[in-house]
Simulated assay, not measured.
Amino acid sequence: MKPHRVDGDGRVHVSLAELIAQRARVVKAAVPAIESHAARYGQQSSRLYGRGMDYAESRAYQPGDDVRRLDWRLTARSGKLHTKLFQEEREGRLLILLDTHASMHFGTRVRFKSVQAARAAATAAWYAVRAGERVGVMAFGQQGQGNRERLLRPQAGARGALAVCGALAEWDAAPVQGRDEPLSEALTRARRVLHGASRVLLISDGLSCDEPAAKGDVKGRLLDLSRHARISVLIVADALELAWAPAGSYPLEHDGERREVVLQAERQRSEFQRSLGAGQARLNSLAQGLGLSCRSIDTAADPLDAVTALLGPNRTAR
């Protein structure tokens, strides 16, 4: 990966310095216990006997216990046989799926959705490594010649989080090219490149949720992916996608072309909001239908609360 040469403004383009600064934001956040990715959904840790394991506790001897694991000190003190239990060290892994479609490069409050998504991804990366997990990221969107390079395999520690931040800034600065990669295809690709990840965080505005897939493919592929990892969904939305815009004229610019949208009647404003917010509503419905943890944030919010709600020790489906 080439170094990111120019730091973004944090509004239209991702600021690498801001992504790295998210590290200080997660210092006081409560972190979850490491989860085993060997168990179904990566939800359970296993207690095992063997060398190189961490001592967990001792309990009364039971028929069939390995006599080599007897806790002789506790046995001597209590007068009854006790066995040592050991917990295998398991290193959790988080894979962040980041939507980089053209629809993400839009925003009317504070920053673009793409910048907010990168901030959330960086926050999640720092949070994961603080919990002792490895963290990686896969971007999906424009499927072009450099698509294979838009994957960073899970790495441990601060080095892993810094690598994620660098990739986020680099991908944001890269020119948009190639055809769109819908969410259905991205989920299939993610399934192939999990690399032992026990958790997956999908960050998207939902507009990549292709219509045919919304009727079955995305749901089925989300379900298939959830059999191998715990999936959480973070939806990034602009204020105009979440609520009616006040009556007035709105200048919009796309690919250098500037237009003015006039919204006066309630019907106009309602249809405008429904059209813009269709993606996030569709993805939210899918997540809720599958019982996945899901949160939404706008472009002005601090992503920390949403990230900790999805990845933290008390995470629940909304």
Rank of each mutant, 00 (worst) to 15 (best):
V135L: 10
R269G: 02
R68H: 11
F86H: 13
A247R: 04
V14Y: 07
L286Q: 15
V115P: 09
Q62S: 14
A21L: 11
R68W: 04
L234M: 06
M1E: 14
L223C: 07
W244K: 13
P303I: 04
P303K: 07
Q268A: 00
L19N: 01
L98C: 12
L94S: 06
R148T: 01
L194H: 09
A197W: 09
A239S: 06
A117K: 10
T100Q: 11
D66C: 01
D302R: 08
L242I: 03
N284W: 07
A245L: 14
A121M: 06
A265L: 00
L168S: 05
D210N: 14
A214M: 06
G277N: 14
R5A: 13
Q280I: 06
P246T: 00
A229N: 12
G220D: 08
S285A: 14
L304M: 11
D7V: 01
L240S: 07
A301Q: 08
E88V: 09
S285W: 06
V12T: 14
R69S: 08
R192K: 09
Q177A: 15
R51D: 05
A29P: 01
Y41S: 12
D54K: 14
Q280V: 04
S114D: 10
L286A: 07
A33I: 03
Q62N: 10
E57G: 00
S270F: 11
E18Y: 03
R73T: 02
W244G: 00
E170Y: 09
E89M: 13
V164F: 04
G289P: 06
D54A: 13
S46D: 10
L207K: 13
A122K: 08
A158C: 03
H254F: 12
N314D: 10
E253C: 06
